[in-house]
Design a protein around this nucleic acid. Structure first.
Lengths: 121, 121
DNA sequence: CACAGGTACTAGACTAAACAAGGTACCTGT
DNA sequence: ACAGGTACCTTGTTTAGTCTAGTACCTGTG
């Protein structure tokens, strides 16, 4: 369902992304799904985001609080803990290092495909 | 064991990387490990690369041939198939799209300390 | 000749994480 | 009451990188 149709690529990226969004502004799950879609992850499923948030909470990277809403059930707001900020810094570094390695390679034009034995007619 | 100590980030990246290296030059497993280390993936384990190659072969993205070696056991040389070239183009596109979404976010400085609690609408 | 060390590949169990599908429940407007 | 949007959670499946261990070949040295 994602416009980027390789789920594997997202792995390891979603957590820092969520932490970054939460560092920018406290937010709740449903809203985070929308914010992720807004920045381009149009196909992200809520079944992907909620477990990721639960993971972050379990690991102590975010703290939560419930806030009643006028438009539906209570919202669970997340914000990074000190640990979360540290993790964000670290994983951002990891991501940037990786792109510095990978992008220069993949961005370069693919080497020409060796010419198959030409059968002409 | 990787200098980038988040294994998850590599997921989905290794295959295109291998295909790219093989498009550049036919190569065998052991050499590919060294080439990956050379471009910066210093911590990559051979136990990671061989299964990835087996996967590519099983999926028909690469073809192989055995060549005797003077310095050890026979080497299994890999080269991309037509399918492999197609997959390379596609997954390179996926990677570049993802970095275009993620990098502009993560590269931006992390927003400072907690904003006041969001008021609900 | 034995054996150490580099070369080269393979196999199996483990793990993390995205995703699909399904479910619960709240709230507003008709 | 009920439809539709809001909001959250859980379970099972699949993919793929990692760890560990093992096999086996080859050259050089004592």
């Amino acid at each position: 369902m994602n416009q980027i149709h390789d789920p594997q690529l997202l792995k390891g990226v979603l957590s820092p992304l969520l932490l970054w969004l939460l560092a920018e502004r406290e937010s709740y799950g449903y809203e985070l799904v929308q914010r992720l879609r807004q920045i381009g992850l149009t196909g992200i499923a809520d079944g992907t985001v909620y477990p990721a948030l639960a993971r972050l909470e379990r690991e102590g990277r975010v703290s939560t609080r419930l806030v009643a809403s006028r438009s539906g059930p209570a919202r669970k707001y997340y914000r990074p803990t000190d640990d979360g900020y540290a993790a964000l810094t670290e994983s951002t570094g990891n991501w940037l290092s990786l792109t510095e390695i990978v992008s220069p390679v993949l961005a370069r034009p693919v080497p020409p495909q060796p010419a198959p034995p030409a059968e002409e007619n």
